[in-house]
């Protein structure tokens, strides 16, 4: 464990908690893509199949449970909470995410560390995390609504990606046999998509600030 990875995990967790608290506090999920949140929950559920079989460390186990619980809590809030679900932009959140799930699964069958159930699902979760932001990106382009996507959320999400890439560079230079091609290549694609999301976030935020007429 290095400081970059620890900080990356913390900023990732904080970004999820910020979103969950924002939805819970405002009882609104306007501008948030349920499909992206469902994909994130699927990422954690398929990545942590080894939760009960392989024990890496207490930190690892606790964080896995927290990630699964917080991502499912967001999906539950957006689907079941009587007040929150009313503000869901159902007719704008129309990205066909089932095709993305299928494509990632087929890719995982072809490209994985080892052709076992656990490894195929692990690779699937890595590919899926890279493209999970797409429904949110499309919704943001359509709605331009950043009410619930606070700047802090975007900031911590960006920090998570940046710190993980630094972590991989650090491990590459300090560990002799560090090769995580699947995670690194997919992580770079993910960071590229996040950069695109941040760009549209900035455009929407700038437009909104202009729209708010001076009092």
């Amino acid at each position: 464990m290095n400081i970059f990875r620890f900080a990356g995990d913390m900023t990732h967790l904080i970004s999820i908690l910020i979103l969950l608290l924002k939805i819970y506090a405002t009882k609104s999920c306007a501008g948030i893509s349920l499909k992206t949140q469902e994909l994130y929950a699927l990422v954690f559920l398929t990545r942590y199949l080894d939760l009960f079989t392989d024990y890496v460390s207490l930190y690892n186990t606790v964080m896995k449970i927290v990630f699964i619980a917080s991502s499912l809590a967001i999906v539950w809030c957006m689907r079941r909470h009587p007040l929150v679900r009313r503000s869901y932009d159902k007719d704008l959140d129309t990205f066909r995410h089932q095709y993305v799930v299928l494509a990632c699964f087929v890719l995982a069958l072809l490209l994985n560390e080892k052709f076992t159930i656990q490894e195929v699902f692990w690779a699937f979760s890595i590919y899926l995390e890279a493209v999970a932001i797409l429904p949110q990106l499309v919704l943001l382009q359509r709605s331009g609504n950043v009410d619930n996507l606070t700047g802090q959320y975007v900031l911590f999400l960006g920090a998570y990606r940046g710190l993980y890439i630094i972590n991989w560079i650090y491990r590459y230079f300090t560990e002799d046999h560090f090769t995580r091609w699947i995670a690194c290549v997919s992580g770079l694609v993910q960071t590229g998509l996040y950069a695109d999301f941040f760009y549209y976030y900035y455009l929407s935020w700038k437009t909104n600030t202009k729209l708010k007429l001076p009092a």
């Binding site: 990545r47 080894d50 890496v56 490894e119 692990w122 046999h177």
Partner: peptide
């Protein structure tokens, strides 16, 4: 002996 795959990252 194949290198054990360890997914220690979250």
């Amino acid at each position: 002996e194949e290198a054990e795959i360890d997914h220690d990252e979250l």
